[in-house]
Write a protein that binds this DNA or RNA. Structure first.
Lengths: 268, 268
DNA sequence: GTAGATCTAG
DNA sequence: CTAGATCTAC
């Protein structure tokens, strides 16, 4: 089974890129973020015409996530609320950042973690609070899914967990996506029993999934590895590959993110 | 000698279309309108690298005209003022709508006539006033250029002179580009001794140079012939062809106008 | 640097 | 419907 995550930075603008990539990379599920479109305007037929099943949760202009699946998914939920209830989640689900579905007993959680703007800002505080609620959310899912849950949590985390995930970690403490508070907040989530599957196969740095559009970052490989797949042990041990596909980032009018694919040794 | 006129609706957005068209259609001079760019930002090198000479008069966002010539042009002037003086022209030259140059003794006047917005509007009044000053301008050029002037006046006139120049002339009196006042104002200009060279070769209707972007006008050929070449008798008798090239209007992200080319039987 | 929203212009 | 300007967000 192959599952990919890709922040497409507007599904409408990136439609051809995404369709072409899916044809060349026949993953079972593609998790996309930053669709930037309300559900009514999501370009459904280009995907359904190719036989894909779509599960979307979008809003106007910002955020928005979707699951694009070769076969139907089960138990679809959008946002934290269906699992945690309104009182715990509050206003966090106003921004469409979470969609979840189950394929062959494997729960796929597709996230678009808040960017946070600047360290210390209001949006930064929101990001940290969102990660706290994410922990509650994943804890609830783990409980729900048996003693050995098979959960894959992927998406754009807007956090580089380690210095080797940044082209230049100098001054990273003051930089959004690399501050101590963000890293700690994500670590607290992962303590539930999730491991970064990319690091099962690749030890060295210099591997990134996002490059700022500005100042030729991609050409200089001034990137960040902020798009991740985190797996529970039952899945982690079955992972046989995790790769970042840089090719789409080289096309005309690319997303600023590259897709990241994980392959699991499970019969489908 | 071949001379073409083309409202490109942004030279920056249409750059590839224009370059490709010039390669496939080696005219001597291409007169473009609605460049929509200040002179400092005009994409010069794509043209000069191919050996073209550029003469431009642009402004921010709106209007803007340019002459793109295979060989150098002489006696370049932009606006009405260099010929008529400031007192007669007033504020009309604030909008960059006129550029003129001479090739092999033939004066080429490239115009972007005001659109006029709606019949009776302030912009409509401006359009009519502009056409009055255009008459003075061309009259002055005719006097300047000898008793048998060789003048070609081309561009986007935003006027369909006859009903056969409109896909549906019904109610045209109330429509901008076809009202009686506009037609009369242009006729008054042409009385100086200019003739529409397209009609030397083509009698029938159904030939258009502009199709609204909206409501699939091009697919339904709901067009208007508003891009013209007007010639003094000395040139008119030497004209051997005048054609509208619909091909660029069929491309992706086209201009709403098609180029119109006139061929003159003159040695170069 | 890129994308969307909103505005103006055509 | 398309393009540019200005704004916000990333």
């Amino acid at each position: 089974m192959k599952i990919a995550t890709w922040n497409v930075n507007s599904i409408r603008t990136r439609l051809e890129h995404v369709l072409n990539w899916l044809q060349a990379n026949p993953v079972d599920v593609l998790c996309v973020q930053e669709t930037k479109v309300i559900d009514a305007d999501f370009p459904r037929s280009p995907f359904t015409d190719l036989g894909y099943h779509l599960y979307i949760s979008g809003q106007k202009s910002y955020n928005g996530v979707a699951l694009i699946s070769r076969t139907p998914l089960e138990d679809i939920t959008a946002g934290f609320t269906p699992i945690l209830g309104e009182s715990l989640v509050g206003e966090l689900d106003a921004q469409k950042r979470v969609i979840t579905g189950v394929l062959d007993g494997i729960r796929i959680v597709n996230l678009y973690v808040p960017n946070g703007s600047e360290v210390g800002s209001e949006k930064y505080v929101y990001k940290l609070r969102w990660l706290q609620v994410l922990r509650e959310y994943l804890a609830a899912l783990c409980l729900k899914d048996s003693s050995q849950p098979k959960i894959l949590v992927c998406g754009d985390f807007n956090i580089a967990l380690e210095d080797r995930d940044i082209h230049n970690p100098k001054g990273r403490e003051k930089h959004i996506m690399a501050s101590d508070h963000e890293r700690a907040a994500l670590q607290t989530v992962l303590e539930l029993g999730f491991a970064d599957v990319f690091r099962k196969f690749t030890e060295d740095g210099g591997h990134f999934s996002w490059w700022d559009y500005r100042s030729g970052s991609f050409q200089r490989n001034s990137g960040w590895r902020i798009d991740h797949h985190y797996l529970t042990p039952a899945l982690y041990e079955r992972a046989i590959a995790c790769t970042i596909d840089v090719a789409p980032r080289q096309l005309e009018k690319p997303s600023d993110h590259a897709p990241v694919t994980v392959e699991l040794e499970v019969a489908l």
